[in-house]
Amino acid sequence: MTLVAAEANGLRTYFSEEVPLEIPKPQALSSMDQIVLARVRVLDAPAGLLGFEQSAGSGEAPHEYWSAWLRVLAVLRGKRPELERVYVTFGNGHSYARGPTTPRQLQQDYFVAMYEDDSGFHLIGVPIAAAKYTEWQQEIGAFERERVKSLLK
Protein backbone atom coordinates (compact mmCIF):
# COMPACT_ATOMS: atom_id res chain seq x y z
CA MET A 1 0.00 0.00 0.00
CA THR A 2 1.34 3.41 -0.89
CA LEU A 3 1.33 6.42 1.37
CA VAL A 4 -1.35 8.00 -0.81
CA ALA A 5 -3.65 5.03 -0.13
CA ALA A 6 -2.76 5.02 3.56
CA GLU A 7 -3.60 8.72 3.73
CA ALA A 8 -6.94 8.03 2.01
CA ASN A 9 -7.74 5.48 4.73
CA GLY A 10 -6.97 8.08 7.38
CA LEU A 11 -4.81 5.61 9.33
CA ARG A 12 -2.00 7.16 11.34
CA THR A 13 0.78 6.22 13.70
CA TYR A 14 2.74 8.36 16.11
CA PHE A 15 5.65 5.88 16.25
CA SER A 16 6.93 4.93 12.81
CA GLU A 17 9.42 2.14 12.19
CA GLU A 18 10.59 3.97 9.05
CA VAL A 19 11.38 7.61 8.40
CA PRO A 20 8.02 9.14 7.46
CA LEU A 21 7.80 10.28 3.85
CA GLU A 22 4.96 12.64 4.67
CA ILE A 23 4.41 14.73 7.80
CA PRO A 24 1.13 16.63 7.92
CA LYS A 25 1.38 20.18 9.26
CA PRO A 26 -0.76 20.63 12.38
CA GLN A 27 -3.17 23.55 12.30
CA ALA A 28 -1.57 24.94 15.46
CA LEU A 29 1.71 25.61 13.63
CA SER A 30 2.50 28.59 11.44
CA SER A 31 5.44 26.88 9.74
CA MET A 32 6.77 23.40 8.98
CA ASP A 33 10.10 24.68 10.39
CA GLN A 34 8.70 24.14 13.88
CA ILE A 35 8.50 20.36 13.38
CA VAL A 36 11.21 18.08 14.76
CA LEU A 37 11.78 14.68 13.15
CA ALA A 38 13.67 12.43 15.55
CA ARG A 39 14.68 8.84 16.19
CA VAL A 40 13.57 7.93 19.71
CA ARG A 41 13.20 5.10 22.19
CA VAL A 42 9.95 4.92 24.16
CA LEU A 43 10.91 4.60 27.85
CA ASP A 44 7.67 2.99 29.05
CA ALA A 45 4.30 2.07 27.58
CA PRO A 46 2.20 5.18 26.90
CA ALA A 47 -0.23 6.18 29.63
CA GLY A 48 -3.81 7.29 29.05
CA LEU A 49 -4.74 10.84 29.99
CA LEU A 50 -8.53 10.58 29.78
CA GLY A 51 -9.07 9.09 33.24
CA PHE A 52 -6.61 11.52 34.83
CA GLU A 53 -8.33 14.60 33.44
CA GLN A 54 -11.79 13.40 34.41
CA SER A 55 -10.71 12.38 37.91
CA ALA A 56 -9.10 15.79 38.41
CA GLY A 57 -12.59 17.25 38.32
CA SER A 58 -12.35 19.26 35.12
CA GLY A 59 -15.09 17.17 33.51
CA GLU A 60 -13.77 17.81 30.02
CA ALA A 61 -11.85 15.39 27.86
CA PRO A 62 -8.19 16.24 27.19
CA HIS A 63 -7.20 17.44 23.73
CA GLU A 64 -4.88 14.42 23.44
CA TYR A 65 -5.51 10.97 24.94
CA TRP A 66 -2.01 9.55 25.56
CA SER A 67 1.35 10.54 26.99
CA ALA A 68 4.80 8.97 26.99
CA TRP A 69 8.41 9.60 27.92
CA LEU A 70 10.86 9.39 25.03
CA ARG A 71 14.65 9.32 24.87
CA VAL A 72 15.78 11.37 21.88
CA LEU A 73 18.52 9.40 20.12
CA ALA A 74 19.02 11.55 17.02
CA VAL A 75 17.39 14.51 15.32
CA LEU A 76 17.00 14.21 11.56
CA ARG A 77 15.28 17.57 11.06
CA GLY A 78 14.52 20.58 13.21
CA LYS A 79 15.86 21.84 16.51
CA ARG A 80 17.01 19.23 19.02
CA PRO A 81 15.04 19.37 22.29
CA GLU A 82 17.09 20.75 25.19
CA LEU A 83 16.70 17.56 27.21
CA GLU A 84 17.50 14.00 26.15
CA ARG A 85 14.28 12.76 27.81
CA VAL A 86 11.09 14.36 26.53
CA TYR A 87 7.51 14.06 27.81
CA VAL A 88 5.05 14.03 24.90
CA THR A 89 1.29 13.87 24.44
CA PHE A 90 -0.52 12.48 21.40
CA GLY A 91 -3.63 10.90 19.96
CA ASN A 92 -7.06 12.38 19.52
CA GLY A 93 -8.94 9.87 17.40
CA HIS A 94 -9.46 6.18 16.76
CA SER A 95 -7.77 5.85 13.37
CA TYR A 96 -4.23 5.74 14.72
CA ALA A 97 -2.00 2.94 15.92
CA ARG A 98 -1.59 3.18 19.68
CA GLY A 99 1.92 3.65 21.02
CA PRO A 100 4.36 0.81 21.70
CA THR A 101 2.97 -1.51 24.37
CA THR A 102 4.42 -4.98 24.02
CA PRO A 103 7.94 -5.87 25.20
CA ARG A 104 9.06 -6.29 21.56
CA GLN A 105 7.64 -2.91 20.57
CA LEU A 106 9.26 -1.19 23.54
CA GLN A 107 12.71 -2.59 22.66
CA GLN A 108 12.97 -0.89 19.28
CA ASP A 109 13.62 2.64 18.09
CA TYR A 110 11.02 4.74 16.29
CA PHE A 111 10.82 7.87 14.22
CA VAL A 112 8.50 10.56 15.51
CA ALA A 113 7.43 13.96 14.26
CA MET A 114 6.73 16.44 17.04
CA TYR A 115 6.41 20.11 17.85
CA GLU A 116 6.57 22.15 21.03
CA ASP A 117 4.13 24.76 22.28
CA ASP A 118 3.37 26.38 25.65
CA SER A 119 1.96 23.10 27.02
CA GLY A 120 4.90 20.90 25.95
CA PHE A 121 5.76 18.50 23.14
CA HIS A 122 3.07 16.94 20.94
CA LEU A 123 3.51 14.08 18.49
CA ILE A 124 2.15 14.39 14.95
CA GLY A 125 0.40 11.38 13.42
CA VAL A 126 1.89 10.20 10.13
CA PRO A 127 0.24 7.92 7.54
CA ILE A 128 0.54 4.17 8.08
CA ALA A 129 -0.41 1.36 5.69
CA ALA A 130 -3.55 -0.57 6.61
CA ALA A 131 -1.66 -3.88 6.82
CA LYS A 132 0.96 -2.43 9.19
CA TYR A 133 -1.77 -0.77 11.28
CA THR A 134 -3.64 -4.08 11.60
CA GLU A 135 -0.45 -6.00 12.47
CA TRP A 136 0.43 -3.45 15.16
CA GLN A 137 -3.05 -3.52 16.74
CA GLN A 138 -3.21 -7.34 16.64
CA GLU A 139 0.13 -7.62 18.44
CA ILE A 140 -1.08 -5.26 21.17
CA GLY A 141 -4.41 -7.11 21.45
CA ALA A 142 -2.72 -10.51 21.80
CA PHE A 143 -0.31 -9.12 24.41
CA GLU A 144 -3.16 -7.57 26.43
CA ARG A 145 -5.20 -10.82 26.34
CA GLU A 146 -2.20 -12.81 27.63
CA ARG A 147 -1.54 -10.22 30.31
CA VAL A 148 -5.14 -10.39 31.54
CA LYS A 149 -5.08 -14.21 31.53
CA SER A 150 -1.93 -14.21 33.68
CA LEU A 151 -3.53 -11.77 36.14
CA LEU A 152 -6.59 -14.00 36.51
CA LYS A 153 -4.55 -17.09 37.41
Rank of each mutant, 00 (worst) to 15 (best):
I124A: 02
F15L: 12
G78L: 06
A5R: 15
A47F: 04
A61E: 11
T102D: 06
F121R: 13
P127T: 11
R80M: 05
K25A: 02
T101K: 12
A68F: 12
R104I: 01
A131H: 15
Q107W: 11
Q105T: 02
Y65Q: 13
K153T: 05
I124Q: 04
V86M: 07
Q54W: 09
R98N: 02
E84G: 04
A56M: 09
S16K: 10
S58A: 07
A5P: 00
A8H: 14
L43F: 04
P103Q: 11
P81W: 09
T89W: 10
A45M: 07
D33Q: 15
G93N: 08
P127C: 11
A6C: 05
D33S: 14
L76S: 05
L106C: 05
E17S: 08
W69N: 10
A5C: 09
L43D: 05
T102E: 04
S67H: 11
E144W: 12
Y115V: 01
D117T: 00
Y115D: 03
G51S: 06
F143S: 08
S31D: 13
S150W: 15
T102M: 07
V112I: 00
A129W: 13
G99E: 04
D109K: 10
M32Y: 15
E84K: 13
S119V: 01
F15D: 06
S58W: 10
P127F: 14
A6T: 11
V75F: 08
E139R: 14
K149C: 08
P127V: 10
K79I: 04
M114P: 02
G120E: 05
I35L: 09
L43S: 02
Q34L: 12
R145K: 14
P24L: 11
P46A: 12
A131K: 15
E139G: 01
Y110V: 00
R71Y: 12
A113S: 07
A142L: 13
V75K: 10
L123A: 01
S95T: 06
L151G: 03
E7D: 09
H122P: 02
E84M: 11
N92L: 04
P20C: 09
V75T: 06
Y110G: 01
E146G: 08
T134G: 13
G99Q: 09
E144I: 08
L76P: 00
A6L: 12
I124P: 03
Y115S: 03
G93Y: 06
W69H: 10
F90Q: 07
H94N: 06
Q27V: 10
G93C: 02
A38P: 02
P103E: 13
L106P: 04
S55F: 03
A47L: 03
E135C: 02
F90Y: 13
Y96V: 01
R104P: 00
T134C: 11
W66H: 13
